[in-house]
Design a protein around this nucleic acid. Sequence first.
DNA 1: CTATCCGCTTGACGTAGATCAAGAACTCCA
DNA 2: TGGAGTTCTTGATCTACGTCAAGCGGATAG
Lengths: 246, 246
Amino acid sequence: MGSAEPDIGCSSSLSTSCQRCRLNHLCLPLALEHHDIVRLDDIVVRKQPLRKDQQIYRQGAAFQSIYAVRTGAVKASFLDRDGEETVIGFYLPGEVFGIDGIGTRHYRSTASALEHSAICEIPFDRFDGLGVQLPGLRQHLLALLSRDLVEEQQHSVLLAKRSAEQRVAAFLINLSHRYKRQQLSSTDFQLPLSRTEIASYLGLTIETVSRVFSRLSKQGLFTLNQRDLRHCQIEKLQPIALAKTT
Amino acid sequence: MGSAEPDIGCSSSLSTSCQRCRLNHLCLPLALEHHDIVRLDDIVVRKQPLRKDQQIYRQGAAFQSIYAVRTGAVKASFLDRDGEETVIGFYLPGEVFGIDGIGTRHYRSTASALEHSAICEIPFDRFDGLGVQLPGLRQHLLALLSRDLVEEQQHSVLLAKRSAEQRVAAFLINLSHRYKRQQLSSTDFQLPLSRTEIASYLGLTIETVSRVFSRLSKQGLFTLNQRDLRHCQIEKLQPIALAKTT
DNA sequence: CTATCCGCTTGACGTAGATCAAGAACTCCA
DNA sequence: TGGAGTTCTTGATCTACGTCAAGCGGATAG
């Protein structure tokens, strides 16, 4: 996004510790007492900021670390053998990704930056070692995985049962919640995904997504220019997202 | 299934221990040394056999235990507020379910027996306590969750991108693998789900599922009477399940 | 300032799968 | 042994969304 730039900015945030990170109440440290956060800090690797489209890990690569988003946004996508890419998820600041590699010891998707982003890497074996001493951390990882599983189940239900309009409405509601969690506006924000990516994530075509956006904004539920969403009326989207399939 | 019966049979298997269970190489004990299995055994509750449609837990109930299937089959389904039921998963002998409740401390779906079934209950806090002493068990649970997450992601991709025929083919391949894992025939088995349940699980209608079954069996890929599948040619289903969406 | 590209929108048309409707086969029970 | 309730199949029709095709506006480059 941003202009040209040799400098990618935010070098200040590069040096941030978990203790001082404004996201520590959302992210892994939330499981820890103040004095234990230091120990997590020791193993967290704060990476060089990434440019748009830079990859964090690739599908099939050996699993080594889990990651957290500090700034920007990251998508996970799955490439099937005909070269078709499917967006299976995306992650906003404070969210953890890469945990789907724990079981198979291989990443099952490719993670890449959706925009300029800063991420934290947590080498898994060190994290696991820490878990021995800090049961809270262990519990938290378990809870994280379990909640991701539930979300993925809900995504499946969305794809299995809901119309295009319902999927798009649910997508916007979900985004809104996740921005709110970060103390950001829940009614005005940038879409982290392109139309193509949204379509892929929701199991639709780009044309359908575009038409649904047009229709909903014509109904006055929000205004949308490119990725710039404004005045989103979540309470009016809610009934659309739920609606009886009768 | 079976005839009338006051006795639900398999009372012998009721007394089985994990050590002697024929599924112990698939199920939780696989993570353990022989002499540690006894400790797992201590906390496992071998429940009364369940009849078809009996519930194990209900959506929204407080999370207490995780479960494993010993015989029979179990489905997990999600009820949305219009009363529509969606089948989100099903579990065969040796498989563990209920772990999606760990994060929220509430079950997010209802689990019920698809047929006469025997299940093992593992109270989660005792299990968790055991995990402190048996790191292998802890790792295994983590791996289990992570692999379930991957499978759920794959299910989402199936729903997002694949045609009715591809979904049904993938479903049969999946079943075949899971029966094989149990040392059962991978080409001849009973479908654990009704047409209605299969349709719900695959995001289709019952009519479409039925038509696809007819079409595929007319092509000689298998024979199917009601739930009785025979001579299933997995290697011919594979190309159908994958096929280019071009 | 004009050209090319890319992301997005919009319209016209086609189709896979949904819906509606009927009937066949199997199950359960009297 | 037969009738009522399931579950599954099959056909005829409808429709939401996909496909194809054109055009627009904003961004970057020459």
